[in-house]
């Protein structure tokens, strides 16, 4: 087993174990911090797939942005002083059975399908190609996403502010 395979198993175990803790911890703060490990594990998987730019974006946007937003959401919506930050869960047994069956079908389908696999040569850095595509073929989507982010920013501020 070479180093890349070993690293894949390390990152896969980090991702899946911390994702399991995200959905099972009673305390929502612990869930949010497990989510940090999940995002970092997914970033490691992107690196192993040769997508270095996506991995960096994952670390910056998810860990630096979305997770901070979620932590703010947790702290602003729970009465921290008098009530412990617990979240209730419901329908655990039927949900485990249904989603266990669903996940089993999904995994067995993925394993039993004969995928045509022809991996491309790994480039040194994907940055140049991603930049060229972003500025040529995908320029319209790129600009639209800029407008979308502006609209989301204004909308979120106007929804959340005091009347």
């Amino acid at each position: 087993m070479n180093l890349a395979d070993f690293l894949f198993y390390v990152f896969a175990v980090i991702t899946l174990v911390s994702a399991f803790f995200v959905v099972t911890f009673k305390n929502i703060i612990y869930s949010a911090f497990s989510l940090l490990l999940t995002f970092l594990g997914v970033a490691g998987i992107y690196v192993l797939l040769g997508a270095d730019f996506i991995a960096i974006v994952q670390v910056i946007v998810y860990v630096g942005g979305i997770l901070i937003l979620i932590l703010f959401g947790v702290m602003l919506t729970n009465k921290i002083q008098n009530v412990p930050i617990k979240t209730e869960a419901s329908f655990i047994i039927p949900a485990s059975i249904t989603i266990g069956a669903f996940g089993g079908i999904l995994v067995s389908t993925f394993i039993n399908t004969r995928w045509k696999s022809m991996p491309a040569e790994l480039a040194n850095s994907t940055l140049t190609d991603v930049g060229h595509l972003l500025m040529n073929e995908y320029i319209l989507i790129f600009e639209l996403l800029g407008i979308l982010l502006l609209v989301a920013l204004v909308g979120a501020a106007s929804i959340a502010r005091k009347q």
């Binding site: 896969a12 995200v22 959905v23 209730e88 329908f91 989603i99 996940g103 995994v107």
Partner: peptide, 28 residues
């Protein structure tokens, strides 16, 4: 790996009551 992650996220959305937890499931 991705299908197990998907199932875990779905489990979080279905079982937890807190709206922020539902958001975390969507992120997964």
């Amino acid at each position: 790996v991705s299908s197990i992650l998907f199932s875990l996220g779905l489990f979080g959305i279905v079982t937890r009551k807190n709206a922020v937890m539902v958001l975390m499931g969507i992120e997964l």
